[in-house]
């Protein structure tokens, strides 16, 4: 055993460097300092870029991001008690990134109750509230008076509501509702293909589209009127008159 160990030690001893080999410490330290102070590309930025590319490229993370961004915006807003101007800025910043990632609403062409054709792209440059609804959908009916009011209040500020009814009976069912509710915005009748394009699987569904043609918010199911109001005002902030801004500015700011 001892012998074996000695044999191994002898072999390994052959690796011993020559005594005269003296690595130069000062040179090495200079080299060390050189390497240490070299600017390295920050890893965090690299990771962020890769993540962003992934999110923008692959459908699954993109869908996830889409779902995540809206609550993030809400959380930011509740945390930062800023004047609405700042809100708007913050909102825009986040949604600009959102827009870069390509979340633009698909265009469509419909016919309104009077028989005139219109397209979503006709309203480019306006803030659009795109509402999917149907006459048999009770909650949708509840929202319509609000939309009428929004259209009346903000219609001249670069805002418009577009209703897309998904009724299978067509105008026969929709026309009486337009008349009884006194709908003052454009309503068209959509089909399944359009509903699919927008991922409508339950009603009502509303999208707020900003002036640059990006989806700002999506609401599925009934949402409070004040929520809509807040979002519309935010999207329109730059267009509002000073008096209106003062009126909407929260107390104490």
């Amino acid at each position: 055993m001892e012998e074996n160990n000695q044999w191994v030690d002898d072999r390994l001893a052959k690796l011993t460097p020559e005594e005269e080999w003296q690595p130069h410490v000062t040179t090495a330290f200079a080299r060390f300092e050189d390497r240490r102070t070299q600017r390295r590309f920050p890893r965090a930025i690299l990771v962020a870029i890769v993540a962003l590319v992934c999110v923008a490229t692959f459908p699954a993370p993109r869908a996830f991001a889409q779902r995540m961004i809206a609550p993030c915006v809400e959380a930011c807003e509740s945390l930062v008690m800023n004047p609405p101007g700042m809100h708007y800025l913050l909102h825009r910043m986040i949604w600009t990134v959102h827009g870069w990632m390509g979340f633009a609403p698909p265009d469509f062409a419909l016919t309104d109750v009077s028989g005139a054709n219109f397209q979503l792209s006709d309203y480019q440059g306006k803030v659009i509230l795109l509402n999917f609804w149907a006459t048999w959908c009770k909650p949708c009916e509840g929202e319509i008076p609000w939309f009428v009011e929004f259209q009346r209040e903000h219609g001249n500020q670069g805002f418009t509501v577009i209703g897309v009814s998904l009724d299978e009976d067509g105008w026969k069912a929709v026309r009486p509702v337009i008349e009884s509710q006194k709908i003052n915005y454009r309503v068209g009748i959509g089909d399944n293909a359009l509903a699919q394009k927008y991922g409508v699987d339950s009603l009502p569904k509303s999208l707020l589209i900003d002036r640059d043609g990006r989806i700002l918010v999506k609401h599925v199911g009934i949402t409070s009127k004040s929520q809509y109001e807040r979002e519309i005002v935010r999207a329109l902030w730059a267009e509002l008159s000073q008096a209106e801004r003062d009126r909407l500015r929260p107390q104490g700011l």
Partner: peptide, 27 residues
């Protein structure tokens, strides 16, 4: 660094043979 560098380099040179490379690895 000054105290330990030579030792570290000598440990490495045992294994990698190439002196220049060993110094680099020690850094």
């Amino acid at each position: 660094f000054r105290e330990q560098y030579q030792r570290v380099a000598r440990v490495i040179v045992r294994v990698v043979k190439d002196h220049a490379r060993a110094e680099e690895l020690a850094v």
